[in-house]
Design a protein around this nucleic acid. Structure first.
Lengths: 207, 207, 207, 207
DNA sequence: AATGAATGAGCATTCATTCAT
DNA sequence: TATGAATGAATGCTCATTCAT
C-alpha cells in the first residue's frame, strides 16, 4: 500500500524505463520525432535530461522502444482473431469490430499508425519489423478466415478474398479522420462502423 | 537553343518559385517538415539559402506553398467526377479507378497524404483547408453519385451510401503500403484494384 | 510650379542624395547604426536598396553623410555667436538660449548628439571631426566671450571662465531627458531655461 | 591554493552568471547592443555560446542584467547623499564631488549612461526603471538639500533650486568628453571640477 | 541512479553588398 | 539611373549528447 507513496530505489529503477517510454510517447505523438526534445520528455516525469540517457542511449533508441511498446494492442489482436467463434460471417464481423476497438479506443494504436507513416523514411527497419511481427500475421489470419468462409460456402469466391487489407481499410480511414482533425470535424462513428460491416458482408456474401 | 543554357533574368525569376517548391517537395517528402534543412532545398537547385528567402518568408510558408501545389491532383478530380457518364455502377467504378490513378501514378498525391498525416498537429489550418477545398467536395460528389444510383435502382439503399470514405478507403490503404515500404514489399496492384471494385460493387448492388 | 509634380531626370538625380540622407537620418535615429537596414532607408523614399548604393558606397559612408548633414545647426551657431551684441551678460544669455533653440527645437541636433555618443567607438574619426569643426570652435568663442566679459568687469575672474562646457552643460542635460524619455516624463522646459540662465549669471557675476 | 586553478562544479556555477555579465558589459560597451555577438561574450570567459544561454534566455535579457548590475554605483549614491553633514554649502559640494567620483572613477557608471542614451529606443522600460530607481531618487534628495539650504539662509531662493539636474549637469558633460574621446582629447579634470563647484556655489549663494 | 553544466554542431533567418539588366 | 535577384557571411538560438559530481 505504501508502495504508491514511497518506492524503494530498486522499485523506482524498475519503473523508470516505462515512465520514460510513456512520457516519450506523448511527446512524439504531439511533435513527431524530429521536433521532440529529450528535455521535454524528461520534464514530463520530473527528471532531467541526463536521466533519460541513463536508460536509452539515443533519442532514436527511445523512439524505437516507444514503437515496440505501443505495438502491444496489435499483438493482442492475433490470439483474439484465432479464437473467434461462430459462423464465418460472425467471425469476420467480430474481427472488423476489433479493429475499431483497437484503433478508436486505444489512442496508442492510432498514434502508432501515425508514427509509422510519418517516420517511415527515417526508420525503415522499424516499419518492416512492425509489419513482420504484427500486420502481416494479422492479414494472414484474416485471409485464412475468409478462405475458410469461402470453403464453407458463406462467402463467394471472389478476388476480394485475396486482400484482407481491403476488408479492413475503412477502419484505417476512420483512424485518419481522428488523427487529422482531432475532434474538429466529428464523424458518426457508430454509423460508420455499421456501414462498413454492412457493405463488406454484402460484398462478400455468397449469391 | 541557348535558352536552355542561359535564361534571362526575367525568365529565371519567373521559374524560381516553382523550382524552389519542387525542390522543397522532395526534401519535405524525404525528411518531414522539422528535419528538412532550407539549405538542402536551395542546394537542390544550385542556389544558396538566401535565395529561398527571397521568395518565401519562412520555412512554414514554403511548406504551405508545397502543400497547395501538390493538392493539384485532387483539384482535378472534382470536374472529372462531375463529368463521368454511364450507368451509376460504371460511374462509381470510374471514380474508384480515378483514385488509384491519382494516388498510385502521381507520387505527389501520395506524399501529400503523408504530409497531412505527419504534420497535422503543426499545421491544423492547412489540414482543414485541404479538407475544405478538396476532400470534402470530392466526398460530397461521391455521395451524391451513390444517392442517384440508389434512386435509379442500381444500388440498394443501405447505410453504406452515407459514407464515401468507406467506398474509397482501400485506395488509401494501398497508398500506405507504397508510402511505408516504398518498393520493399510489392503488392499486386492491378489485382488489388479489381478486388476493391468487385467487393464494393457487390456490396452496393441492389437485390 | 510643375516642378513639384514632375521633375526632370536631372532634377531627380540632384535631389536623390538629399532624400536618401533624410530617410537615413530617420532610420538611424530610430534604430542606431547597427540595427538600421539599408532596405528600410530605401523604402522610406520609395526606391530599392540598389539605388542607395548608387549614391553611397557603404552604410558607413551614408552614416557619415548623415552626420555631416545634421551638423548644420551647429555650424550656424558660430556666426551667430560672433555676431551677438549688447553687454557681455546679454551676449552670454543669448548664447545659452541659442543652445536651447538648436537642441530643443531642432530634433536633428538632438539626434546628432545621440549619434555621437552611441557610435563613438565605431566612428572615432567622425567624432573627432565633429569636435574639430563645430564643438571646439563654439567652445573657443564662448570662452573668448567670457574672457572679454571679465576684462570688461562684468564677470568675475574665476575658474569658471576656463570652461565653456560648464556654462552650457544644462542644455545638454535637457537634451537627454528628451532623448531618453521622448515625452514620457515631461519637464517644464521654460522654467528650466530660466533657472539655467539665472544660476550661471549669478555664478559669473562680478562681486 | 589549487582552488584558483580548479574550482568545483558548484563554485564554477555560482560564479558563471557574474562572469558572463562582466564579459557582456565589456562587449556591449565596445559595440553597443546590436553589434555585440553573444559568441564574443562567451569567448571572453573561455566558454561557448551555448553556455551563455544556460544562464540568460536571450541577448536582451543579458543586456538588462548588465544594466541592473552596473546601476550599483548609482544606488550607492543615495545613502551617501542622505548622510552628508556640514553646512548646506559643504553638503552640496560633497554631493557634486560624489558625482565625479562615481562617473569618472568607475567606468561602469560612465558606460551605463551611454547604454541608456544609445539603447533608449530599444529598451524604454529599462530606461524608465533606471530613472525610477536611481536618477529620480537622487534628484529628489538633491532638491531637498537645496531647499533646506534656502530655508537655512545659505542659498538664495531662486529658480535654480527647482532643478537638481542643472546643478549636476557639468559632471555629465565631463563624462561625455571621456566617453566620446576616450583619452584622445584630455581635459584638466581637477580644474574642471573646481570650476563647476565654484560657479554653482556662487550662483546659489545668498546675497 | 541522477544531475545539470557544458558543449558543439546545427539551423532558420537576416542583411550589406554586388551586378546583370 | 534604377532595379531587385542573388549571394554569403553572419548571428541568435537550439538541442542531443557527454561527463564530472
Amino acid at each position: 500500500m505504501r508502495c504508491k507513496l514511497k518506492l524503494t530505489r530498486a522499485e523506482q529503477k524498475a519503473l523508470r524505463p516505462q515512465q520514460i517510454i510513456d512520457a516519450a510517447f506523448e511527446e512524439f505523438a504531439r511533435n513527431g520525432f524530429a521536433a521532440t526534445r529529450v528535455e521535454d520528455i524528461a520534464a514530463r516525469i520530473g527528471v532531467t535530461k541526463g536521466t533519460v540517457y541513463v536508460y536509452f542511449a539515443t533519442k532514436e533508441d527511445l523512439f524505437a522502444a516507444v514503437v515496440m511498446q505501443v505495438s502491444q494492442p496489435f499483438a493482442e489482436m492475433i490470439p483474439y482473431i484465432e479464437a473467434v467463434e461462430g459462423t464465418y460471417q460472425e467471425r469476420l464481423k467480430k474481427v472488423i469490430r476489433l479493429f475499431y476497438d483497437k484503433l478508436m479506443v486505444d489512442r496508442r494504436a492510432r498514434e502508432l499508425i501515425r508514427f509509422m507513416i510519418s517516420e517511415a523514411p527515417r526508420f525503415p527497419d522499424l516499419v518492416d519489423r512492425h509489419d513482420d511481427e504484427f500486420m502481416a500475421p494479422i492479414a494472414t489470419r484474416i485471409k485464412s478466415l475468409i478462405d475458410q468462409g469461402v470453403a464453407a460456402g458463406e462467402f463467394r469466391d471472389g478476388p476480394a478474398s485475396w486482400f484482407a487489407e481491403i476488408i479492413c481499410a475503412p477502419a484505417l480511414m476512420m483512424t485518419f479522420t481522428r488523427v487529422l482533425f482531432d475532434n474538429r470535424r466529428p464523424l458518426d462513428e457508430a454509423k460508420f462502423v455499421e456501414a462498413h460491416i454492412d457493405i463488406m458482408m454484402n460484398g462478400l456474401a455468397a449469391n
